[in-house]
Computed example of a mutant assay.
Amino acid sequence: MSSRPSLCLLALPLLAGCQFLPHTNYFIAPVNEPNPAWVRIVNYTQHAGIYQDEKGVRTGGVIRSGPLPFINTQDMGMPKAGQDLTFDYYETRVRPDVETEVSMMWEGPRTLSCFITITFTPKAGRYYQFMLNKGSGDFCTSDASLIECDKNGTTWHLTPNPEVTYKSNGSTAEKRFSNARFEDPDYHPDPNLYPGTAL
């Protein structure tokens, strides 16, 4: 048997297995939206996602640009509202008047993490900011803000956004271990199975 058919036979199981690999959906900003709303996500962008639901069709996904969870800073020129934003924030257009979900996650050591999911309906031409804070104790917190201009039209500032809802326990989430064995501080896993967790 020649080498080409042998290679094809070897590759067949690998290609057939692709259907069982994890699939990641990515958020794609609307390109031709004439009057979009604007969203900024601050902190932990490698795990954040934006989803929009219109007429029963859900679109969107994670805001990173590839399968590896790298921080994806993207500046689209949104007003900074006095903030010193230089790293780990993501700005994008979204379709207005469509139910929108912003999902944020903090991931710490030893499989510890927390999730906060916020839903709202953006309005055309408005600016929205969502920030996740890892917190210092057993909880992480989030801020949902409007970015608004003052009456003089010269200075931008953040104001709390009262028109958001939270999928779980509000703007605070408990940090949890995805693997319960790590709750025991004396548990030391095989570093080949959990690289970087031997703390």
Rank of each mutant, 00 (worst) to 15 (best):
T100S: 10
D97G: 04
A11C: 09
G17E: 00
V39R: 03
H23N: 14
P69R: 11
A124V: 04
T100V: 07
G82A: 01
N35Q: 10
L112W: 02
E107L: 13
L12V: 00
T155H: 03
V57T: 13
T100I: 06
R93E: 14
P191M: 13
V57G: 01
D186W: 08
I71T: 12
E33H: 00
G66E: 14
R4E: 12
K151A: 15
A173I: 09
H157D: 02
V98C: 13
N192E: 14
P191Q: 09
G60W: 03
G137N: 10
R4I: 14
R126S: 15
T92R: 12
A81W: 08
L7P: 02
V164M: 12
D190I: 09
Q129T: 01
A48P: 01
G135E: 05
D53H: 01
D53R: 09
P13E: 04
T121G: 03
S103A: 15
F20I: 00
W106S: 13
T59C: 03
M131Q: 14
C114L: 13
F130A: 11
P96L: 09
I118T: 15
K151S: 15
A37E: 07
L15E: 02
A81Q: 13
G137D: 13
L199E: 12
T59K: 10
F130R: 11
Y26M: 11
T155I: 15
K55F: 08
V31S: 06
V62Q: 14
T92W: 02
A180W: 05
V98W: 05
D190Y: 10
V42E: 04
T86Y: 09
K55M: 12
S65W: 06
P191I: 11
Y51G: 05
A81D: 10
